[in-house]
Every structure is written in C-alpha cells, then in structure tokens.
C-alpha cells in the first residue's frame, strides 16, 4: 500500500485497484472544528481534480477534490453523524470516500509522504 498527497491537502491511499481519500492532518488543523461532511454517492464517476466532497468547519466551507479519477464505491457513513471524526483521526477513521482507480499513472503526479511534509513545512 502506498499513500500520496496533493498540494490541496488531500491524501490518497492505494491498495491494488481501490483507493481511499481523505484530508490531511494539516488541513483538518487549519479548518478547525469540522461540523459537516458531504461525501459522494456510490457509483459517481470522478475525474481527477473534480469537486468530490464538501467539508465545513465552524467558520468555512471547502471543496475536497479527488486526487485521481475513478468510480466511487463507498462514502464514509460515519462522518454523517460524527463529522468531528475528521479532526480526531484525519488520516485514518476520518477518511472521506473510496474509489476504484481508472488510471494508475495519475498517481505519479502526486507527492509522497516526505515531499508533502517538506511542502507543508514551507507553508
């Protein structure tokens, strides 16, 4: 399994053909208290960069972009009742959605963990 990151602070973890997407700990910290998450419906076809989900904190609404193209197979239902899970465990239980990947080569354009850490350190 390997994990990649976008400049917009999404993470994507790839396990074979299936990938899981969420927002990074840095992003969750910047947003503050998350009060609402809207995840994409099963079967929705996404193209890399599409608005895939909405996350709202006490003060701001943000779109979450999909880091790769594919078909949504599951949204994280736990976030409907407990959006604060994104603050508590952003890179684990606070994942947003899973999708089957259309094109692995898109992942090559993303940052690995080390590059993302260096990127955040400069912000």
């Amino acid at each position: 399994m390997s994990r990649f990151f976008t400049q917009e602070h999404e993470w994507i973890e790839v396990d074979g053909e299936v990938a899981t997407v969420g927002i990074t700990e840095y992003a969750a910290g910047q947003l503050g208290d998350i009060v609402f998450v809207d995840v994409p419906a099963d079967g929705r076809e996404l193209t890399k960069g599409d608005d895939a989900a909405v996350v709202e904190s006490v003060k701001a609404a943000s779109d979450v972009y999909t880091p790769a193209s594919g078909v949504v197979i599951e949204g994280n239902a736990a976030l409907t009742d407990n959006p604060a899970l994104v603050n508590e465990d952003p890179e684990g239980g606070g994942w947003f959605f899973k999708l089957t990947l259309r094109d692995d080569s898109e992942l090559g354009e993303l940052m690995d963990e080390e590059k993302y850490a260096a990127y955040v350190a400069r912000l």
Binding site: L31, G32, A60, S62, Y65
Partner: peptide, 9 residues
C-alpha cells in the same frame, strides 16, 4: 481542498 484558511466575519 479549497479555502483552508478560515477567517471570522
């Protein structure tokens, strides 16, 4: 993700 620097009104 967009707009990740919230500001109060």
């Amino acid at each position: 993700m967009s707009d990740i620097a919230p500001e109060p009104a």
